[in-house]
Write a protein that binds this DNA or RNA. Structure first.
Lengths: 138, 138
DNA sequence: GTTGACCTTAAACTTAACGTTAAGGTTATA
DNA sequence: TATAACCTTAACGTTAAGTTTAAGGTCAAC
């Protein structure tokens, strides 16, 4: 599979895939005699995993240090530890997200609890004041 | 309260607070006769909320357009919609995170299930191949 | 009355995560 | 055989969200 095909299958752009290779996230891609990059089917899964991890809050830099390039030198203990750490990280992010979500829902609840007889501006003031968002007057 | 004090209380840097003002996130701060910025106590809460919203995934640009400088012109519907969208976004991320976590735990499980008689490198290969993480050989 | 901690501005610099462009080689197809 | 649709590299551009620097003015203390 060449890069255009891989791009299509992963939804990433070719430039982005080349970029990942440039920063060492993807190692030595096979080359055809003409210089074209040739990817195995698993590349799709690998890129999918990278995308997911990124969405989960991992930086490309983190990912690079996490994915060992040489499997033969792969050292059991550090990776297991890294994985455990990542699970912990994910749990921390999950907690933060839950808080953020709760806060957003609280704001939404406040806004929707607008008394029938109150106009929007007043309600805005009430809600924002409730959350310390009121700006200092001009 | 001047900027150093506000910085201390919010945990932000003065440069960051000035930056927020520059991009229009904080409007006309009061100035003392000597030109120093002077903040009311609510500024602490406001900055805290900005930080929270940022952590919730709002960009500074989004925040600026969402937080109108003139409360009288505050438009109810778009803000409510934006908030709902953010909740949805958070839920999507949460789902992906849960998947990522499950996947990591699965990897960990696989690693720990290494047959007694298999060496580490082979086990690594076995596990990573199992998850499509195998890199193309050199 | 000067030292040090604080404040001011404008502008340049940084980092992450890409994207774009230029200049060219390759491959499929009509 | 030509032409579109691929691919290559290298280098420069972009956006977000700041930080740093340079060149000063102000304030509290000793």
């Amino acid at each position: 599979m060449n890069i255009g095909e891989l791009a299509k299958r992963t939804g990433l752009t070719p430039s982005r895939i080349r970029f990942y290779e440039r920063i060492g996230l993807l190692t030595q891609v096979e080359r055809l005699p003409n210089g074209y990059r040739s990817y195995p089917p698993e590349a799709v899964t690998a890129l999918g995993l990278i995308a997911t991890a990124q969405a989960a809050g991992f930086s490309l830099d983190e990912l690079r240090t996490l994915l060992p390039s040489d499997l033969a030198e792969w050292d059991h203990a550090p990776l297991v530890e890294a994985l455990h750490q990542k699970v912990q990280d994910i749990e921390n992010i999950q907690e933060k997200l839950a808080e953020s979500k709760a806060q957003l829902l609280e704001v939404l609840g406040e806004i929707e609890a607008k008394p029938e007889d109150m106009d929007c501006a007043t309600n805005a003031r009430r809600v924002l004041a409730r959350f310390g968002l009121m700006r200092t007057k001009e």
